[in-house]
Each structure stands twice: as structure tokens, then as C-alpha cells.
Design a binder for these strands. Structure first.
Lengths: 117, 117
DNA sequence: ATGATATTTTCATGTTTATGGAAATATGCG
DNA sequence: CGCATATTTCCATAAACATGAAAATATCAT
């Protein structure tokens, strides 16, 4: 991850339809969803959805694969991890005055990670 | 945090100068930096920096306070936390197939949080 | 092959965004 | 008060972005 790629990823998420698609795919898990189903879910024409998905994929936030005529899209968890790590890099210069609380709070919103007090 | 505010926050970060300022403030810690010093650091005119800082502040990512003629800006850690939590909400529907690894990896890049294997 | 389905690419249009000079506002100093 | 410093607000302009119809591509079924 570098600055330019981070800007691309953030720009990809900084749009209502694309953020909704991304969050839907985060929820959906590794099996992802079909392009057409995403267009239906967001109530946009297929060409519009295709533009959005291309932008998310170019940004490294989703990945896609084809099975016969259907194209699957899923969240790219490694890409998300790289982005979030980049955003918080060198937080407070290693002094976890604010950062430790911040990050453990995010983790503690999920189940089964085990960093919580 | 809601969808609209998340889009605002992501849009605020999706620009080269603003992302650099944000990361600089994340590094700087709670004491923050002076507006003029940020303009100097980024080599942009004060009016341009003022636009950028206003957008970051409106997005809930930085906060500001005045001491005499100087205006301080600092990262708003609570705002960042709200954004990151929103992005990862309901990841994999609670089944931490991918999410637990993702989030603990972010935490383990820092020191002293203690969720790491 | 032909036709049907799923998706992308091309292209045009209107909207939003980034930039920075100039003027305005706020504060401190003598 | 009058001047200097720090920052913001106003304004105009150029560049980037979102949208979706139409045409193109890919795959499958008969």
C-alpha cells in the first residue's frame, strides 16, 4: 500500500452506491455476490453497476471471478487490511495514548478476536 | 455513524493533500499541529489548506481549537474509530472466517495492544 | 449457427470538486 | 487606535466524476 493506492481505495468507497456495495460484500463473505444481483440490490442499471464494480476492483477492495455467464464479486479482505493499516500507520508515533483504545474498540465490536478487556 | 457521514469521511480522505494531512495528524498525536505549519508542510497556500482542513473537520476526522492567533488541528480518534467500525460492521455476518484475521493483523502492527498470536 | 442471457465498454452529458488570488475576519502588540 | 500576523471566506476556473443509453463481448442452450 502507498499513498496513491490509498487515495484510489478511499475514492472508491467515497460514493453512496459503491459504499453500499462494499458493505454488502463485507457482509456476504468470501463467496460474494453476482454482478446482476448487486445491480438489483442497489436499483441501478447494469452499466452503472459495472462502472462502480470496476472502480472498486481497480482500487483493490473487491475481486471478481467468472463462472459461466455469471460474474462473482467479493470483498478483498487483504486489500481492506492494507488500507486500514496504512491509515493508522505510526499512530501517535508508537505511543498508544489514543491508538490502542481506538483499535481494540474496533476489534471488540466483533466476536471471537480476544483483545478485549 | 451512518452511511452519509461515512461517505463524507471517506471523501475527505480521498484526496492526496488531505490524506497526507490526516496521516501527519495521526502521527502527531493529540496535541496536533498549527494550520500554518500544515500549509508549510504540504507546500500549499493557506487558503487551499483552509479548504482542506474544513472538509476534514466537517467529516469528523479532525478537530480544531484556537489559542490566540493560532488554530490547532488534531486527529479526532473517536471519529476515525466510528468510521472504521462502520466499514467493518457485520463482517461475514459474525462468522470470523476472514474478519478476525484481518482486524487482529491491523492491531498487531501496533505495539502494546495484546491481541496477537 | 441462432437466439437468449449476463456483463462490460463506449460515449455524451450534467454535476461536483480542487485550486488559489483577493478580500474579509480575528487576534495581539505597541 | 493602527499595524502586523494567522486564518478563513468569497469567487472564478479547470479538472475529475457519476450516470445511463446504446453497442459490443462472452457464454450457454437448442
Amino acid at each position: 500500500m502507498n499513498q496513491d493506492k490509498a487515495v484510489m481505495a478511499l475514492a472508491a468507497l467515497a460514493q453512496d452506491t459503491r459504499l453500499s456495495v462494499f458493505r454488502l460484500l463485507i457482509k456476504a463473505g468470501p463467496d460474494g455476490m453476482i454482478a446482476g444481483a448487486l445491480a438489483d440490490a442497489m436499483a441501478v442499471p447494469p452499466s452503472t453497476m459495472s462502472h462502480h464494480l470496476a472502480k472498486l476492483e481497480q482500487a483493490g477492495l473487491v475481486l471478481s471471478w467468472r463462472t459461466s455467464r455469471l460474474i462473482h464479486y467479493a470483498a478483498d479482505y487483504a486489500g481492506v487490511q492494507a488500507l486500514l493499516t496504512f491509515l493508522m500507520a505510526d499512530c501517535c508515533q508508537g505511543d498508544p495514548r489514543a491508538c490502542a483504545d481506538l483499535l481494540s474498540a474496533i476489534v471488540c465490536d466483533r466476536v471471537g478476536v480476544g483483545a478485549c478487556s
